[in-house]
């Protein structure tokens, strides 16, 4: 699974970063570089994926990820269809396999899937011949998010290896956390997680991460903080007592950040709860790379689409020129 063969950079699918080599991940990030420029043009389109049909199959609500994928697909010239769980046959009890097979019957090339169930992307990938990209499966992985986080970090700090990155917040329920842990570790970064013990999963140390239970310690340690969105329902389900207390104890505030020994880079996968996990002064401050993350998201997804379509590492620039 996902082991690069000599002739193709990526395998058939991208279902996660777990098990991907440093070379593969670096290859994806490098491939994203030439694609950044396309989004800066007046006419934001190259026909690299002309004639390809891509389905964005979203079984969970998503704005940012779905639109980012759609821009990436369209800017590469692919034809795209969006399917969201409301208003589709999914609501009529059709199984995931049936939905996918029906799409296949219409001769598609790739599927981007977002699903509430961990393992759903792999489940689909094992059952259809189209390329499958995981746009987030349950609490498991969200590989393109981690790739764009890493690309943004690399842009800002010039490297990943040796960096200290702390993921802050609801680690238990976070697919972003898992993908970041796998990806960052593969690239030689040191990774930590920080949050109340009720939101740190059992056995997380086995994934090779450090744990902090005080945000001050994490800030003292880290070169970058990746601050996760705190799902509001965690309060109702008893993981934390209140948003107020969460903000008071774990919120990344200007005052806390000022005590950092360095200019800590601030990432957030969005959407943000301002005043809960992050204060506006931090989100909008000079150390924040939250909007560059969004910009990079399109380039990273273009790179993944290009590579899964058979592109090779180092071939993106030529593909751009050739197709133009």
């Amino acid at each position: 699974m996902n082991q690069p063969r000599p002739e193709v950079a990526l395998g058939k699918d991208l279902v996660g970063l777990e098990g991907l080599s440093r070379e593969t991940i670096t290859g994806i990030l490098d491939t994203a570089e030439p694609f950044k420029e396309i989004s800066e043009r007046a006419i934001k389109k190259v026909p690299v994926l002309r004639g390809k049909t891509i389905v964005n199959l979203f079984f969970e609500p998503s704005t940012r990820t779905r639109i980012s994928f759609e821009f990436a697909e369209k800017r590469l010239g692919a034809d795209t269809v969006n399917i969201s769980s409301s208003g589709s046959s999914v609501m009529k009890g059709e199984t995931l396999v049936d939905t996918a097979r029906n799409l296949e019957a219409m001769r598609i090339d790739m599927v981007v899937i977002r699903h509430a169930s961990s393992g759903a992307a792999r489940f689909l990938a094992d059952r259809i011949p189209s390329n499958v990209i995981n746009g987030g499966d349950g609490q498991h992985e969200h590989p393109t998010q981690a790739l764009l986080d890493m690309l943004t970090l690399r842009d800002r700090l010039g490297r990943i290896e040796g960096l200290k990155v702390c993921i802050v917040g609801d680690i238990v329920h976070s697919r972003v956390a898992r993908s970041n842990i796998f990806g960052l570790r593969a690239l030689g970064a040191e990774v930590a997680v920080c949050g109340p013990r009720s939101l740190i999963p059992y056995g997380i140390e086995e994934l090779g991460v450090e744990t902090f239970y005080h945000i001050e310690d994490a800030i003292e340690w880290a070169d970058a903080l990746n601050i996760l969105r705190l799902q509001l329902e965690r309060m109702q389900t008893g993981f934390i007592p209140s948003l107020r207390e969460y903000n008071r104890v774990f919120g990344v505030t200007r005052a806390r950040l000022e005590k950092a020994p360095r200019d800590t880079v601030i990432l957030h996968p969005g959407p943000m709860n301002r005043g809960v996990e992050i204060d506006s002064a931090v989100a909008d401050g000079p150390q924040s790379v939250i909007l560059p993350q969004v910009t990079n998201g399109v380039a990273v997804r273009m790179a993944v689409l290009y590579l899964l379509a058979g592109g090779v590492f180092g071939g993106a620039e030529a593909a751009k020129q050739e197709s133009a």
């Binding site: 393992g119 499966d137 349950g138 898992r178 059992y202 056995g203 997380i204 086995e206």
Partner: peptide, 10 residues
Amino acid sequence: EGEIATQLGL
């Protein structure tokens, strides 16, 4: 509940 569940996100 254990490291495998943590890894698989279950």
